[in-house]
Simulated scan of single mutants.
Amino acid sequence: MNRRTPFEEMERVFDQMRHSMLGTWDLSVPTPDRRWPSGATAGANVSIETDDDGYVVHADLPGFERDELELTFDDGVLTLSGDHEVADETSARRRNVFEQVTIPGDVLAEEVTASYRNGVLEVRLPTADAGDDAHRIDIE
């Protein structure tokens, strides 16, 4: 039986509290510039921004390897999951992450890209209407 250290147990409890307070993040809820309120975090410390092409999602995932992460986009929901385990002769430690972000609008799913460098996952979700400039209409 693997026994958790007090710090691992505390991390698990805090992750449960964050998930119960924040649930899945829904970008259709109006917030200034569609950014999360200052200090809002989830188990993976996720941030969402908009740019000229659509949405950019960043997730801090130090310690994970690229092949331990799974990323899917289905029906307007970006899902990130990962499982990292470290074991030696005397102990074993496991870290899991699961986050979902609802993206409003028409995301061009075939053009979604992701990169993972230095423990930071960056997902770019271009939208069909991104970059459209407003057209000024003269009133006669």
Rank of each mutant, 00 (worst) to 15 (best):
A92H: 02
D133R: 12
A130F: 03
E140I: 05
R34Q: 15
A40Y: 08
E49I: 07
V120M: 07
I48L: 10
S91D: 09
D52W: 00
R66C: 02
T72Q: 11
F7H: 10
R117F: 09
D106N: 07
P62Q: 03
A128H: 01
E68G: 03
V77F: 03
E49V: 10
T41I: 15
T113C: 01
E65P: 00
V112D: 01
V86C: 01
S28L: 07
D67S: 14
G76Q: 04
A42T: 15
A134T: 10
D33A: 15
E11T: 13
E8M: 11
L80Y: 04
L108E: 04
E85W: 01
P32N: 08
Q16P: 01
H19I: 11
G39E: 05
S47M: 12
D33C: 01
R34M: 14
I137S: 09
L108I: 09
E85D: 07
L121M: 06
M17A: 15
M17P: 00
S81R: 14
L80H: 03
D51S: 04
A44W: 04
S38C: 00
H58V: 00
M17T: 12
F64E: 03
E9N: 12
D106R: 05
P32C: 03
T31F: 07
R34H: 15
R136K: 14
V57F: 01
F73M: 02
R18Y: 14
E65V: 00
A44M: 12
R136H: 15
D88V: 00
E85N: 07
H19V: 08
A42L: 13
V29Q: 09
E85A: 12
E65T: 08
G76H: 03
V29A: 05
D75C: 01
G105E: 01
A42E: 13
G76A: 08
A114S: 14
E11F: 08
Y116N: 05
F98K: 07
H84A: 12
N96Q: 13
R66W: 02
Y55P: 02
A59W: 09
V120C: 02
E9Y: 11
L22I: 15
V77G: 00
E11G: 05
R66K: 14
A42Y: 07
G43M: 09
T113S: 11
A128P: 00
A87G: 00
L27P: 01
T41S: 15
E68A: 11
V97W: 07
E68D: 04
E8N: 13
S38M: 12
L22A: 15
I137E: 12
V97G: 07
G63S: 09
E65A: 14
A130E: 02
S115L: 02
P126Q: 05
V112N: 03
M17I: 15
D106E: 14
H84Y: 05
V56L: 12
A44Q: 08
A92D: 01
G63K: 03
G43T: 10
A134I: 12
A42R: 13
Y116V: 06
Q100K: 10
T5Y: 07
A44D: 09
F7N: 14
V57T: 04
L108H: 00
L22G: 06
H84K: 05
D75T: 04
R94M: 06
E11N: 13
L69W: 08
A109N: 05
L121W: 06
V123G: 03
T31Y: 05
P104H: 10
G119P: 04
L22E: 09
R34I: 05
R35C: 07
R94A: 00
G23R: 09
F73E: 02
E49R: 13
